[in-house]
Structures are given as C-alpha cells and as structure tokens.
Amino acid sequence: MPLGTLDRTPPPFFKQGPSAFTRLLVFSALAFFLMVADTRLRLTQPLRAVIATVLHPVQRVLLAPVEAVQVANEYLQGVHRAREKEEAAQRQLIAQADRLARLELLERENQRLRSLLELRPAVKSATQAAEVLYDAPDPYTRKVIIDRGATHGVARGSPVIDEHGVLGQVTRVYPLTSEVTLLTDKDAVIPVLNARTLIRGLAYGDPANEGLELRFMATNADVQEGDLLSTSGVDGIYPPGVAVAKVHKVDRRADSAFAKITLKPVASMASARQVLVVRPVSEQLPPRPSAETEAADGGGAGRRKGGPKP
C-alpha cells in the first residue's frame, strides 16, 4: 500500500483547539463585559424577567410539598393549642361553676339568716342559731339533726323555728347535736291560735299528707281556708305569736260532730338549713316563791290589815 494514500490527520481524541490560557482570557473578558454591561446598561434585566417568569410555575410546583408540610405542621400545632385552650377553659368553667354554686348557696343562706334576724325581735325568748345536718335515719318519723347540743346550752323541749315559722321541737339532746321532731311527725302536737278569730286549738302531725290536722274543732266552728294559725303560748314551751300553719282544707262532715281541718305548715320542713333554737318559755319565767315566803307574806299582810297587836 503506497504511503501517500495513508490518512495522516490525528484522531479526534488528539485534536487540540485554543489553549487553556486563551480560553481563560476570552471567558474572563466576556464575563467582565457582561458584568459591566449589566451594571451600566442593564442588558440582562429583560432576560432575567423572562427566565423568572418561565421558571415561576416550576418554582411553585417544587415549593408545593414544602408549603404542604408547613401547613400540616401549623394545623397540628393549632389543633394542639386549641385543645390546650379548651381544657383550660373547661377547668376555668368548672371552677367558676363551683364558685357560682357556692355563691348561690351563700346568697340563700344570707336570705334565710336575714329572715331569721327579722323574726328574732318577734320572739321574746333567748335564741341561738343552728344548722340542720341531716335527716334522722328512721324512715317512719319526721326528725332532723342539728349541730347544737348540751354543750351549747340546748335543752330538751326547746322550740325550733326557721325564717317562716315553727319547724319542730327538740326531743333528744346529745353532747354536740340534738334531735328535732318536726311538726309533721305523727307524735307532734302544738297548741295554736287562729289569728283571725282568736280561737285556740290543737294541731297534730299528719305525716300521710306532709302537714298537720286541727282536731276537735266543732263542725260549725269559724275556721276558713287560708286562716293563719300561730302559737298560743299557753303551753309554756312555744313563745306566742310565731306562725305555725295555714288552713288548707275544711271538711265539715254531717256524720261527725267535728270538722276535718287540714293544715299546711309555713316552715320549710324538707329544705330548712338555718334555724333558731328557742329557749322554752317556762325556763325564762321568774321562780315561784316558796311556801315559807308565801306564808311570811300572808302573815305580814294580815298584820298590816289587822293592825299592831296589843
């Protein structure tokens, strides 16, 4: 094969263009020119605007997962904060509800105490305030337990009243507590006086009707529905003039000489809390003079009447 026919050009791998230094100079000068032109003439500003406009949807698509994660994180944090605020609001609401309940209870107690203070001047007897603790455990009686006993000076037979009227009578006294038999008990009896007609009578407890019954009143007795009955004071226990009950119903039966008169107590038998324990009237009366004193007074009166002895 003749040597002239051989291809003497080097392969592409061995071809060399401008030198590296030349390329550095060219690209450095181009970069410097573009920087100067962009600074002075702002030639690349429209190009940047076009590129930014074209790439904006791509940026939004790429930012969507990041924004979704941020929104989800903010949502979870917001839910957590909302739950914490809800729990705090519930605790505050419970505290306010408890405070409101105690406030309402105190307001009711204040009203009862004010009523008792208004009733106190009408009761011309020594009194002391007490509170009803609980009902007696016997289901066949109408009795309550108060927080005053023998150590507080409570005596057996002491009347007990609330802001409306007579509640009952102390029947048992313990060192720190006392048992009060309500007027609606089957064994309770209280002498009463009709405030309208001034007729006296006896009111007996009627537990079946949660009230009282005015017994042994004649059929033609002047008793009307709505009449107010108060204590008569003749028994030496209850002070006179304290409200007891109102006439609820009068049944004048032809087959009986006595009328059946049903009474409704004015005191709060089932809901009384603050009460007054009244000292029995008989214990506040002055002591009766002894026989020797009466004889001496009688002899002195006789001597004064007959004149001096010779």
Score class of each variant (00 low, 15 high):
110 N>D: 05
111 Q>I: 04
111 Q>R: 10
113 L>F: 06
115 S>Q: 08
117 L>I: 03
119 L>M: 12
119 L>C: 04
120 R>D: 00
121 P>L: 07
127 T>H: 09
128 Q>L: 15
130 A>P: 00
131 E>Q: 10
132 V>N: 01
132 V>K: 02
134 Y>T: 14
136 A>R: 09
137 P>K: 10
137 P>D: 11
139 P>G: 12
140 Y>E: 15
140 Y>S: 11
146 I>F: 02
147 D>T: 13
149 G>K: 09
150 A>C: 10
150 A>L: 15
153 G>W: 09
156 R>T: 15
156 R>H: 11
159 P>Y: 12
160 V>T: 04
161 I>W: 00
163 E>N: 04
163 E>V: 02
164 H>T: 05
165 G>Q: 01
169 Q>E: 13
169 Q>V: 11
169 Q>Y: 05
171 T>V: 14
171 T>M: 03
173 V>P: 03
176 L>M: 14
177 T>Y: 04
179 E>V: 01
179 E>R: 00
182 L>W: 01
183 L>C: 01
184 T>S: 00
184 T>A: 06
185 D>F: 02
186 K>M: 13
187 D>F: 15
189 V>R: 14
192 V>C: 00
193 L>N: 02
194 N>G: 07
196 R>G: 08
198 L>P: 09
198 L>M: 13
200 R>L: 12
203 A>V: 04
204 Y>G: 06
204 Y>Q: 13
207 P>K: 08
208 A>W: 10
209 N>H: 13
210 E>M: 12
210 E>Q: 09
211 G>D: 08
215 R>M: 12
217 M>Q: 12
218 A>T: 13
